[in-house]
Amino acid sequence: MRISERKLSLFLKRHHLILVSFLLALYSLHLALTYQKDVPRGYIVRQTLSAIVTPLERLILGTSSTVTGAWSHYVFLIGLNDENAELKKQVESLRSENDRLKEDVALNLRLRELFNYREAVPWHSTAAGIVAYDGGLWARTVTINKGASDGMVKDLAVISPEGVMGRVIEPGASTSTVLLAIDVRSDIDVFVERTRIKGVAEGNGADGLALKYIMLDDDVRVGDRILTSGITGIFPKGLVVGEISKIEKSKDNFFKTIEVRPAMRLSTLEEVSVVTDTGFYSRD
């Protein structure tokens, strides 16, 4: 072996680690700098590593999600049933209270409206609440929570801010029966607001009124308002009874057949005003 070869061999032996490292570093650098140049390489190594590590990664993520799930679905939820039941109770209680408060607000609004109405009219009246409805085949009556002990007597007018409601027919000790204007037994002297033509509003027993004794040549139209005339002395003059909804020629060729839509809305009415004054006779 020549001296130069021996020197080279010695050099390689002494620095083989550095040389190998240097070559590996150069190869790495080559890989890195040609990374974006679409050179297909390392596919087998990449796939092999992926095959080894992917199950491991899945295991880690699976364990992680199991632990997280156990924490959120079990450990974290301990005691949540009791809390849930307690919250449900609270929700029910609050809902009930909310309903009651809404009811109170609605009652307050209705009473305020009734109070304002009572203040505005020139006669005395007392407020009463409806405690029962009697919607028989033809009868249309309600029971109010004011009776003889409260000054209720027969034929007192019962009204609401919307208009005529009916009249007291049977005053009891603490409650009274009110005959509604739509009952077939009810008849109220009225006049047409626009033309002052007089007639009688009778209940038709079917939640409506019939305006009677209007001649064929009388000027009445659909939409005309019907007001109390005050002739019988039960109702004050000028209360709204209803509105003409239909006009037909009767078979006798003498009177018109007129249907009146009542002003009161029985389905939504809960409080009424009983006029305690009597003797409202019209001066007309």
């Binding site: 490292s21 590996l24 570093a25 190869y27 790495s28 650098l29 890989l31 890195a32 700098l33 390489r41």
Partner: peptide, 9 residues
């Protein structure tokens, strides 16, 4: 690929 291996070497 190659950057970390270069650094490690």
């Amino acid at each position: 690929i190659g950057s970390t291996s270069f650094a490690y070497i």
